[in-house]
Design a protein around this nucleic acid. Structure first.
Lengths: 216, 216, 216, 216
DNA sequence: AATGAATGAGCCTTCATTCAT
DNA sequence: AATGAATGAAGGCTCATTCAT
């Protein structure tokens, strides 16, 4: 049975063979290494191909263009982060809201351990291309689900609230990564992030400080 | 006889004559327009010069290179934002902590009104260059001062706490800008940002949830 | 897998395929032609690429930058000159010192026949870059070997003497080329060069006029 | 009486006022300094004007273009060298041919003392522009006159012989300067140059090795 | 006479991408 | 599937030169 060659987003050949899968992996790995070593300026398709040990032609066999490569890399990172968070939650013994929040925060922070340079570059690159948005979705959903379980005595979050909380959390973490803050992996930092999330969740539940709004 | 020079970062001619000052302004304005119109990809020195109505040579008479131009633009934006915040605070009639927080948040959000594209591009560009950090400083200082006035019954914030709060706030605003969220200027969004800041400040003051930290 | 690379001075692709070798030759030939036609001012990388019938990108695939191209050209000229001298000596029937000197001089002068403009430009360019020195080495060595064969009843030359003789000889020839002297290829000119070399060699052997040095 | 503004070679205003003369001197001095400090690549009209403490406009008031400036500089150097040689000859007590040759050689070598970098650059620049020739004239004449005084028992030199001798001598000196040879100012080097000139002069007088010319 | 802001042709170089092998 | 030589549009930037003040 001939499997149809489903064109994906970058309408390039989908790898259905082991070798092809390896090649794609090698390219992505090469891309990450180039990014790690030289940042965004060094991230050229030729450099990636060379680092990956494949020819530039082969690279283009699997990625429609440079930004497709970048997108794939970002996706890989995002998937890894989400998997880490999910795993952390599964193995978390403390079932309280705070326990789950802490597990999530920790997994997210940990996701930036090692290869910081590459992640930073990926973040920058993704921003610089304006891809941002869709990658944030899953994490936001996660927060919405985790933080707003109504059965835990917390109010369900509105879309704006999910947005604010998820972006605020990611904003703090991302800034720590981009600015290469030394306390990135310190327990104190984690504590403060947890405090931020918890305080907000509780304030929303308490309906505080809702009404007192000055006329714009 | 050595002519006076600008600080190291930009060893280009400093304007002596009125005409020169106008030229610099025209270039910066042209840069903002190019950014607004075409985003970062369109931001070439030639395009800026043309839009500004000056020759490329003139541009380089005042800006050492492309990134210096971008930096100057970012500085201009940052200065404007800070001025707006300061002005908002001065004219704020409500002296309570929340009143001041709200004024600050509103000014920051408003700073992104109009020319959103350009600001987005500036932010992206600045990020893409890795300049980020120093521009955040003033805002962080602002938050530290505003939010942690001890005489208002609030605890003084630690450096990590200032970092978390300022980056979280900016992260949410910046995400709304970058993602072009429709609620960017809605009162609800502002409310949630205020809630976030206030909840965190109060949680810090209450010392909550400090100690309960799982072993890493 | 790292591809083999040329030595440091020119980290560009080394030709693997026949086509590539031809390309390099075409570029060098194009460079010589441009130089011949328009001199140094016309020697731009774009002009060379166009004359060579390749794209500018291809040129840069084989030469790190403009000066590398110039260097390669100079090397080619130098190698050709040396080969001509060596060949002349091999086929020289007169085994006397003067016979050998004459053969060398003639080969050197002949080396500047044709494409004078290009050679002139190469010399100028090389000088203008300050590369000069190392290219002179082989010729000096040649003179040292040729002129100072002790078994011919001539004293061995000191390093300073080798320097003076080689540079003086080359200086006269180069000046004739640069100044486009009509007698460049006349027998008389050759005679005088031979006379210069022979007279110096004999004077050195005679130890004349060594000692009579005035106090500086 | 209105003095006519004689256009000279660069058809720019001839300085008839003290201030103007000073300005020209300042520019030439600035040019020499720029050359000395940064070599040919740094030698831009703007840099020279700045170093000279005048505006670029003023520079162009006195020099038609960049090469005119360079030519003037070369002329200045040449004049200085010739003056030094002439002075050395005047004060030379030894009236013998060799005494006069030695005085000349020494003065020429000395002319390259100090500001070697600038002179090197001037030489390079002049070569790179192809101006060379005419500057050599005076020195050649000098040699012709000095070396070929028939009343000293030496044959009169033919034009080719003057050429060969003057270029050979200058070639050796110039090479020593360009290659920054340590022995440039050593007595040994001077000795060898004297030996070269004397040997050639004597060989010419002896008519040796005139006839034995192989068929070309 | 002097100033210096402005000019702009044109240079060098990069790098995403193609396509014949 | 893979290769890698070739492409060329386009970008950043320099610097000799002009001219209004």
């Amino acid at each position: 049975m001939a499997r149809p060659r489903q064109p994906i987003e970058n309408n390039r050949r989908i790898p259905h063979q082991a070798r092809a899968t390896e090649t794609v992996a090698a390219i992505l790995e090469g891309a990450a290494q180039v990014l790690e070593a030289g940042g965004l300026p060094a991230f050229t398709t030729n450099a990636v191909a060379e680092r990956a040990g494949v020819s530039i032609g082969t690279l283009y066999q699997y990625f429609a263009d440079k930004s497709a490569l970048l997108r794939a890399l970002a996706e890989r990172e995002m998937t890894a982060t989400l998997a880490a968070v999910a795993k952390a939650l599964r193995s978390e013994t403390d079932p309280s809201v705070e326990g789950r929040v802490r597990a999530t925060v920790r997994a997210m922070v940990n996701a930036f351990r090692g290869r910081q340079r590459a992640r930073k570059a990926v973040v920058q690159a993704v921003l610089a291309q304006g891809i941002t948005v869709e990658m944030m979705g899953p994490i936001a959903a996660f927060i919405a689900e985790t933080g707003a379980a109504p059965h835990r005595g917390l109010a369900r979050l509105s879309p704006e609230q999910v947005f604010v909380l998820s972006r605020a959390l990611m904003g703090a973490i991302r800034a720590a990564v981009l600015e290469e803050q030394p306390f990135l992996r310190s327990p104190t930092f984690e504590d403060e992030l947890v405090r931020l999330v918890m305080a907000y969740l509780q304030a929303v539940t308490a309906g505080d400080p809702g009404p007192r709004r000055t006329i714009a």
